[in-house]
Design a protein around this nucleic acid. Structure first.
Lengths: 248, 248
DNA sequence: CGGAGGCTTGAAAAGTTTCAATCAATGTGG
DNA sequence: CCACATTGATTGAAACTTTTCAAGCCTCCG
């Protein structure tokens, strides 16, 4: 009984953009059957990275973008002085590596925060394909543009908002990103350490810790280590907009 | 004698991507003659905006990107609460509007900081063309990716660096961007007000002012209003890397 | 000339960082 | 299997940077 199934799955790593649960978040959006097939041809699916493993490393030759299937990835830049700067967290359905498309080397390193499965998209073949399929090119422009906007949002958060506002914003962002998947938007496990959060948000670890406990005392969240429960989402949203309220 | 020349220039606004002095900064990079012609067909050159005029406005239909020919543009987002957040300054040879390519409306407003000349690139026709010319598509991916990296750089500056470091970095950035043009990298006129600088760098105007005078007292710059002279570029570079030095 | 806006300066207040110490959780080796 | 080392998270108090508020100055332009 297993035989015929095995035969049908000769290439098990190749046959699933069609039924991938991430498809509307990830690339295939707006492609027809035929085009999806061509996309699948170039996608290497099902690569697994364990917690702490590098998906790619800054300054090594840029070959591929990676779509997160499950798990989580953090990207970071090592500055000349050796400091790490976390530039982003990537959840399932999100595409890592777009910021490297302007050079021959990766602009940042990408590390798996937990056991993580990704699809690899070699850029040279991807560019060929985007050239052949206008919708895919459009989608790619879309994704990159979105990345620019995200980064602007982050810059805004960092330049204008207090520690509480930044952390509330991060929690809400994670919540909605979990929510888009089948997971609970109010109760989840943070894939990253306090250190990563602090680094990403431009704060000291101690500040992050203090804000978490402050939120907890105010009944906004319940946090034990990386386990987080959002108890009052609306209040958290209010926190992120606090900066506005004051100036009106 | 003028007649035949006039005839050749029937469309004076259309005939200059070839000899444009910005061509290696801007789009035409790596295109052949024929391709350049096709690019020129879709580019509307020579639009002029006066100081303070909007090149495009946030939330209005997204139609075009704009390449700065001369002058300077600032982009900014108006948040729900009505605050302005400056997201970037664009100098000659730079492309404005890439962050809007993910939606049907402009993600930010673009305002001319001084009398500014731009080339308009309608996106629908641009996407057609990038589809036809792989090099142009590649170049566009390149530009957008660079924009992501720039924004990450900015986020880094905002999250990790002091007021002095931020301002030194901005001055050096402007310097190198002026330098790439025919202009002096050490003596120039800031196109933006202190207010814009402060907003962009996430500081209070007063802080910007103080740092300027501090730099002046230290002999790093000479500043009178918007006129700036960089007296000691190496020292300024040291300032930007000060954060590194401390941690080693 | 006078007003308006932009720029500068000072002093107090606020928020965040830094330093230091403690605690909890986890894993290792005796 | 328990003591111990290690790592990450938390808490407190002092130090520092930046903001805020307030006032004055300069300059450009009607």
């Amino acid at each position: 009984m297993a035989q015929p199934i095995t035969l049908r799955q000769v290439s098990p790593l190749k046959a699933s953009c069609h039924q991938c649960s991430l498809s509307n978040l990830c690339l295939p959006l707006a492609l027809n059957e035929n085009e999806l097939d061509r996309l699948e041809d170039i996608v290497q699916q099902g690569r697994i990275f364990n917690r702490g493993e590098l998906v790619f490393e800054q300054s090594t030759p840029f070959r591929s973008c990676f779509a997160v299937r499950s798990g989580a990835i953090k990207t970071s830049i090592i500055t000349e002085s050796g400091e790490e700067q976390v530039t982003g967290f990537f959840m399932p359905g999100e595409l890592v590596g777009l910021d490297s498309m302007s050079s021959d080397a990766y602009a940042c390193s990408a590390k798996a925060l937990e056991r993580t499965s990704v699809c690899e998209l070699p850029v040279d073949r991807l560019e060929e394909l985007t050239h052949k399929i206008p919708e895919l090119q459009h989608h790619f422009f879309h994704l990159m543009s979105q990345e620019i906007q995200n980064s602007h949002q982050l810059a805004m958060l960092l330049s204008k908002n207090t520690a509480e506002e930044r952390i509330a914003a991060l929690l809400l962002s994670l919540s909605s990103r979990f929510g888009r998947r089948r997971m609970s938007p109010t109760q989840f496990s943070l894939p990253m350490a306090r250190n990563d959060i602090a680094n990403f948000l431009g704060l000291a670890v101690e500040t992050v810790s203090r804000v978490f406990t402050r939120f907890q005392n105010q009944g906004l969240i319940r946090a034990r280590g990386r386990e987080v429960e959002l108890l009052d989402i609306e209040a958290l949203q209010l926190v992120t907009r606090e900066s506005s309220r004051q100036r009106c």
